[in-house]
Nucleic acid binder design. Structure first.
Lengths: 206, 206
DNA sequence: TGAAGAATGGACCGCGCGGTCCAATAGGTA
DNA sequence: TACCTATTGGACCGCGCGGTCCATTCTTCA
């Protein structure tokens, strides 16, 4: 699908993506035009369409992919090593720190909201990101169970889903209200739940 | 702030808002133009600007307010009566049903994402909605504690925050991935947690 | 019943911005 | 050196769409 791409060309393409990502983080997709990107990345109109033939949507998709990578990368040292209670806390602090720093500007959700949630390519990016993310969390919960720091009755997939939901939900509300408390409280609570004994199971699924 | 408004005028204004809301639910903000709204509501350009002098943003804000009302209204019978475990389950089912039905189309988040998360008016709407929502949940958790169906160690505000976060996070991921499982699992788990005894408190805040 | 003001219709404008095109250059390979 | 292709520059277009304006028709009330 990709044409021949010189090292120089690849570099330019990357420069465009990263430059566009920066602009979009600052101003939001609808406020960033191709001319802005062109100016910020010291490129010309023809280059934009040379590397992203399908135009703006194409470029935005590349930026979304890039931002999705960032989401994992930003929390990677901690996320990949959730092998003890202390390390879970370290990850939790890292997550809160990240979102606290970026506040309203959740780059990925801004992108995807614009591209339309119905777009299959957008969904693919999101699904992929969430799957990887959840994978790390499941492994972490399992590790806690193995070390006896989590209640044996905990279902790793359920717990990981709850924690992931706490993060995304908290981040969403932070973005919407500028309040960090949702993320803080919900994530802390979700992780704490790992140590609570499950009561007599009453009803489990929907 | 509002000019004189005849009954007829108010009706027209309402027709515009509701018609615009419908269109936006279907196609998303960026794909709905003033001309579309004009056509769908059998109005003229001048009426749009007569009732929403600040133009499109003004109208979108009114639509966002309208949609925020809907969010509460849709789950109202159950949400206002979380006085027993059974009723909590009824509310949970109702929430899942609502979001399952609308899938990708979360009207409010679509609006607010577009208007820019930085806009104070947008934040006001969101904050107001979440506060009311959380109020109902806190009351419900307290009721469960009072009736002995929830663990006495549960903090109603914390639990309500976790549940609210599970809903918004699950809804967000449903929108992004078309998977209902996040909402289903996280909300069920968050509610189930009400019945789990809290372990020896280790570290509570950040 | 007539005047004031609200409500409505719809033609019109302007421009921002995504997208096109062609010409010019740089870089690699034989 | 010569050629091919990737890379680049930037002028140009077209139109969608938000926004303006004025004329006309309804409502209300004294």
């Amino acid at each position: 699908m990709e044409r021949a791409l010189t090292a120089k060309g690849a570099a330019t393409r990357q420069r465009i993506v990263e430059g566009a990502a920066l602009l979009i983080r600052a101003d939001g997709v609808p406020n960033v035009g191709l001319d802005d990107i062109r100016a910020a990345t010291a490129t010309s109109k023809s280059q934009l369409f040379h590397y992203f033939p399908a135009g703006k949507a194409d470029l935005m998709l590349a930026v979304a992919k890039f931002e999705a990578e960032q989401v994992i990368a930003e929390q990677l040292p901690q996320l990949a090593d959730l092998t003890s209670w202390r390390k879970w806390q370290a990850w939790r602090r890292r997550v809160i720190q990240i979102y606290d720093a970026q506040r309203q500007r959740c780059p990925l959700s801004a992108l995807t909201a614009q591209l339309g949630t119905g777009d299959p390519a957008t969904r693919e990016i999101h699904a992929n990101l969430l799957d990887r993310w959840q994978g790390y969390l499941v492994a972490g919960v399992q590790a806690l169970k193995d070390s006896g720091e989590a209640d044996p009755g905990v279902d790793p997939r359920v717990a990981a889903t709850s924690i992931l939901t706490a993060v995304t939900g908290g981040a969403g509300m932070l973005q919407a209200t500028d309040r960090i408390s949702y993320l803080q409280i919900a994530l802390t609570d979700a992780i704490d739940t790992l140590r609570r004994p499950a009561p007599a199971p009453r009803r489990r699924s929907a």
